[in-house]
């Protein structure tokens, strides 16, 4: 792949297919007022997609995360989430606790 070719592909098959959705959202948002019913619906759709992405990564993980057993991944997610709730809703504490369980679990499993 030539240098120029790599940049052309970046724009054509990377930038355009992603940016297209932002442009569509931009056009649609012109007619939406915040606190409107359509706005609340769009917000629900965005949260549901994100929730689906999160669950898919945990259940069908990419790359080396797949070598960590499902039970450890679920346990790490639960501990991270519970720590967040207990530790005055701190994102940092939740992520740190979840990561600690994942890494210790993976070590114990022998990865």
């Amino acid at each position: 792949m030539s240098e120029l070719n790599a940049y052309a592909l970046l724009v054509l098959v990377g930038f355009l297919p992603s940016e297209m959705w932002r442009v569509l959202g931009f056009v649609a948002a012109r007619r939406i007022a915040d606190e409107s019913e359509f706005f609340i619906w769009a917000r629900s759709v965005a949260i549901a997609v994100l929730a689906g992405v999160i669950a898919k990564i945990i259940l069908f993980p990419p790359g080396t995360l797949a070598s960590v057993p499902l039970s450890i991944r679920l346990c790490a997610t639960a501990v991270g989430f519970l720590t967040f709730l207990v530790a005055r809703r701190s994102l940092l504490a939740g992520v740190a606790a979840g990561e600690a369980v994942l890494i210790l679990g993976a070590l114990a499993y022998g990865i």
Binding site: I47, L50, A51, V53, I54, A55, I57, I58, P61, P62, G63, T64, L65, S67, V68, R73, A76, T77, G80, F81, F84, L91, G94, V95, G98, E99, L102, I103, A106, I111
Partner: peptide, 15 residues
């Protein structure tokens, strides 16, 4: 593996 796990755990909590 730990870096890949950052995305789901942080997105779940922040959402």
């Amino acid at each position: 593996a730990g870096l890949l796990f950052l995305t789901p755990v942080s997105f779940l909590i922040s959402t």
